[in-house]
Structures are given as C-alpha cells and as structure tokens.
Design a protein around this nucleic acid. Sequence first.
RNA 1: GGACCUGUAGCUCAAUGGCUAGAGCGCUUCAUUCACAUUGAAGAGGUUAAAGGUUCGAGUCCUUUCAGGUCCACCA
Length: 705
Amino acid sequence: MDSKYSPQLVEEKIYKGWEEKEFFKAKINHKKKPFSIILPPPNANGSLHLGHAMFTYEDIMIRFNKMKGKETLWLLGLDHAGTETQFVYEKYLKKQGKSRYDYKRDELYKMIWDYVAENKSTIKNQLKRLGFALDWSREKFTMDPEIVKIVYKTFKDLFNQGLIYRANKLINYCTNCGTSFSDLEVVYTEKIDSLFYIKYQIKEGGSIEVATTRPETLFGDTAIMINPKDKRYIKSIGKTAIIPLINKEIPIIADSSVDIKFGTGAVKVTPYHDFNDYEVGKRHNLQMVQVIDFDGKLNNLTGKYQGLRIFSARQQVVTDLQASGQMVKIKTDYLHRVGSCYRCGKALEPLPKEQWFIKIKPLADKAKELIEKKETEVLPKRFKKRLLAILDNFIDWNISRQVVWGIRIPAYRCKAKNEWFISTDMPEKCQVCGNHDFEQDEDTFDTWFSSAQWPFATLMTEGQDFFDYFYPTSVMETGHDILRAWVARMMMIGYFSTKKTPFKKVFLHGMVRDPKGQKMSKSKGNVIDPILMINKYGADALRVALIFGTKEGGDVALSEQKVIGMRNFINKIWNVGRFVEINQKVVEQFIAPEINSAMNRTTTKTLLKELDKEYKKEKKQYLKYMEGYQFSKALGLVYEFIWHRFADYYIEQLKDEVINGNIEALGSLKSVYLENLKMLHPFIPFVTEEIWRVFNKESILKSSL
RNA sequence: GGACCUGUAGCUCAAUGGCUAGAGCGCUUCAUUCACAUUGAAGAGGUUAAAGGUUCGAGUCCUUUCAGGUCCACCA
C-alpha cells in the first residue's frame, strides 16, 4: 500500500470489476427479502450536476441493504424531458441559424432522438463515476416502446373511467415558444406596468370607469363587474355598458371577487384572456370571445387592430382612447407579478385552447389515504404535512403539450362527428363513425405524465414475476423541490394503475448550495461540477461531502474545502489500513516472536477490552441510525470513532505493542478496523473495496453487516 | 395574502427535554526520522436572535416580537 490513497488510480478499475461480476444485477430470490429503488430518471438533455450526486443516498440504501442480506434492485432510467429537451435543442438549432419550423415533425423528432442518445451515454458514464450500484442490465427510457405502451394504457384507463376530459380552458401559453404549460411550470416575475383608467359609457345614461393593465383586450370584454356590496355602483347593476372604440354592448354584473378598494372598484371582464375573468364568465354564463391568437397577434374581431402584436396593440388602443377622451388617467408605476415562460422569459398569455385534462380530485383523495394509512411513509416527517397540503390543492392537470419531442397522445378525432376516441394502437378505422376519416392529436404528453408512472411502468416491462417481487418499491428518494410535480403525481397515478402505493417510503433530500448557502446557478458562476470534484479528490470524498454534518432533508452547503476535508478522511482510513498491513507483514515474516513488551500486559488487555466494548456500542448505534434512515448521523458516528477513538487513541496506545509483535493486539485492531470498513462501505464504496481486497479475497460487497 | 421552515463558534452546519452545547473549514501555539503534514497534541472562539412562560431541568416544548428562507395562491 502506498502512503497516499490515489482514487484516480483505482476507482474506475474497481467499478469495472463490480460491473463484470454483475454484483448489481437483481434477481428474483424468494429466500431473500427484496429491496428496490427506482432511480429518479435524469433528463437526457445534458450532463449530471451536483443535485444528481445526491442520489448517493440511494446508493447508500442499496449497498447497506445488500450487505444486510436483502435482494436489491436499483433500477436505472432516463427521462426524455419533452419541453425542456426540445427547448435545449432549439437553442442549439438557433446557433446554426435554423428553427424548428424548418423541419418536418418526423425530421425534428429524429434529430432530437440522436442528440438525446449522445447525452444518455454521457450520463451513464457519470453515474458510474459516482460509484452507483445501478442494475445496468435493465436500463429504461421514458420513450421505450414498452413504456409508451403502458403510458397509453394508463391514459385509456383513465379515459374509460371518466378521469380524462377534453376541454376548452384557459391555459398558460407562450406565444414565443409555441406551447402551453401547466400551472406548475409558470414562473412569476415582478414587473412595473401602467394601470389604465378607462371610461365606459352606460347606455341608460352616465358612465363607469374601470382600471386595467391590459386595454388591448377590451375587444374581448363581455361584462363589467362590480362588488355587490359596493354602494357606489349598486344602481348600475343590470345596466348595459358600451365598449369604447367598438361600441359593443355588455352587461354590468355583480361578483364578490371584486376588490372594492382596488382601482375604481369596477372591472372589465375578459373571460378568454384572464384566468379570474374566465371563472367569472363561467359563473355568470357570459359570452366568451377570443381576440388574441396563438401567434400573439390580435385577430379579425378587433377591426383595424388586427395583426398587431400585443404590445403595439396596447399602445395603439391607448392612443385612440386618449383621442376619444375615454382614457381618464394612467398610473405608470404599478408593480405586479406576471406569469412568464421559464424557457424564454416572455410573458405568458392566458388563451383558450382545447386540451386534455386529468380530473385530479378522486386521484388525490386516494393518494392522501395512502399517506394517512401509512402505506407510504414520508421521511423526514416534516414533509408529510406539505405533501398532504399539496394533494389538497391540486387542480386538474393539463397534460397536452404542443411540442414534437415527447410521447404523442393516442387520441383521435373523428372528422365527421368531431368526437374523440382513444386507441393504444394506431387505429385502422374511425372508432366513432366507422369510416377512415380521422386524425391523431398533434400534441404530446406532458413529460410528468410518463414520469408519474415510472415506478410501476419500469418494473412491468421486466415481467409479471419481477414486478410482483419488487413492487411496491421500498423507497423513493428524491429532492423535496419536486414533491408536487413528481411525488404527488406518482402516488396518484401509481395507485390508480396498480391499486398499491408505488413506494413504501418517500425519502426527501435537500438542495445542494454553494459555500454561502446560495443557490447554485450558471448565471451566478458558483456551480461546482461533480465530475471535476471526482477527478481531483475522488468520488468517495465528494459523496461524503454531500452527507457529512447535514440534517436529513436539509440543504447542503458544499465547498471545495469541504470535499478536501473529506478527502483527508478517506486518506486517514487508508493509512489505518496501511498500518495494519505493514505490521501484519512484519508479524508474518518473523513468525510472531515473543518480545518483551514495553507495556504492561494487563494494560494491553484492558485496552483491548475497552476497544471491543466501544466498538460493539458503535456498531449497535450505527445499525440503529441506518435502519432509521439517519445516514448523516451514522456517518458522523463512524467518522468520530475511526478517527478520534480508533486511530488517535487505541492505535496510539497499542502502537508499541503491535510493532513489537503482539499478535493479539494487532488481531483486535484488524478485526475492528475491517468491521468499520464494512460500515463505511455504503458511503465510500471505492476506498473500502480497495483496502478490503488487501486483506480479503472476495469483494467487500460479498460480506455482510 | 396563506402555509411551512430556519435563526447555535469567524463561515457552513450538528445536538431522542438531562452530565462541561459539538463537527468540518478557518485561526493561535507546539510536535514531527512514527501508518498518515491529506498528521498529531494543546488552545482561543457561544448571553443558542430577543422577551416572557411551562418544567426538578429548555438550544430543544408554549406565547409574542424581530430577522431570513421555501412552497403555494395570485386581484383587474
């Protein structure tokens, strides 16, 4: 053994060894209890970042349970990440002066497919660098034909049970990117805009003033509303207002959603261009008129304004209202929040569009039951409340996306009767009218619709027996930031399809932050590349740096300094091994000469007894922590023991004895040390394996805890 | 606006209501032909945000205030 441990020389070699011996390949073994984790599938549109390195928790669970004698499965998969990936690819096209509209659907799809294939192989190599004990024989991709088949079946089942409906609803639409987003994907940004006070004449006499940030939508107004408790306007209810510029007549109605104190207390209602107005429109059975199109331009219902983009239309309308004397005043410093596109940053347009929706309430109620009945345990506990609150407030889920890259929705429209039918296979004839005249929906599924099915869909493709053995999975380990987008949906859809919880436990980890606790982002320039850290200090050091001294579920402040500190810990473990190895060689050479010991025999015996006692206590506590999913504590315990008790105290005290050939002392030290290597293996698999092989023939993975 | 979380050493964070509140990094002094300078020993550094309460006992539980963060809802 060298005086320094060099991860660069051994890690890749060790990993290859594990792979060749298929240590991570899961089998059905009814003599053993199963332990399974499905890897949250990384998006196949880039490379891994530090957040992915947090999957170390899963590796710890897998290796620990394997050494505890369970049959383990850690299933690898990758996500196509529809909208996100297409966006990344479009940026790439733009650099070459091209756009997605230069290609046919099939061409674009094929190009993105190749791009994704490249990323997949990068990511897989990176997962290996991290030392993850993934089952490489069962790699899955969200667009595998067998997975798509299951996704289609789920859609059809949901449809048949009345949980899928198609509706013309307001959606968040980016006119720049050409796709809709679910409410979860909307990013709100603060913006200073003008608030315009506009006078509407009342047919019966007089006038009423409204305040709006969007005068250009007045063509789509179908009512004016006021609060029924507002004495100022009570007489106006039921009268008819006249829209300026186009002189259209609309009713004045009362709705309690109006804030009396805001603006003038009177609001123009534009159901097809505002979410709140849409609800009002439904409540009052108002007419709904779309005046802005999906290209972001005003349409033919706006007369001379037709063809203008939203912003120019606004300016023109304002100018014309000023000319006609109907613009009362303009407040230019109005601060509000605007929903914007997370891809391009432009303001999202609420627009009416026919989309597929999932009726969430019945599904969410079942998911809540799973939590309440402890079919699914939430760890750390404090996230339970949050998950329940999320399930309480889930609104119907829009699963249509207007992108090419994704799983195309298996819904077909009968052209003759304008009715829809669902078919998991490409239909030969229309299932509505019996003719051939039908067309498939152009849209693809929201990525999360397939992700929501990941635990059961992946296992189902491995056959019924495999599914029965490993499902429900033991743990779902992921970041707490996607509780709503992913965890909640997996529970809802998972239960719907299998009538079981998809996972018995949810274990949530925190976010990786920079040394000052700030979010890591490219724009801040504080991003740490996990592969760079591995190249410099080894995967073990990085893994432990993410876990040491943290609270479960809490954020981790990661610095290169911390990784260095952990590298030192790895080296310490290495050198303890080296001490044992060197002395063992000496003992072997001289065939245990009985040399006069400088130390009193009784003292030595007492020390060894103390060591044994302390080690037993340590191991007991370690198992308690590990079984309680308190990994950081388990690690801290062994860290403290091996460094500050075992090395600093016991080795120092027994050093002279050992060097003088005391076999008993060396033997005790060695056996306690090897036990500690096993305890550390789930955390730092590489160095423990490398040292283990100095003393043992078999891999440390073949040992048991 | 609603909910939740956090506030502990210079920095980042630990601490089932129980002994002298700990670790990593940083800092000071000393050691060094030794398994390890990626080391060891010793040390400085704390009114646990503030106030009040419960308790034999509070960093921990309760109330209030202050400060910061996260998620959700988003009012023209």
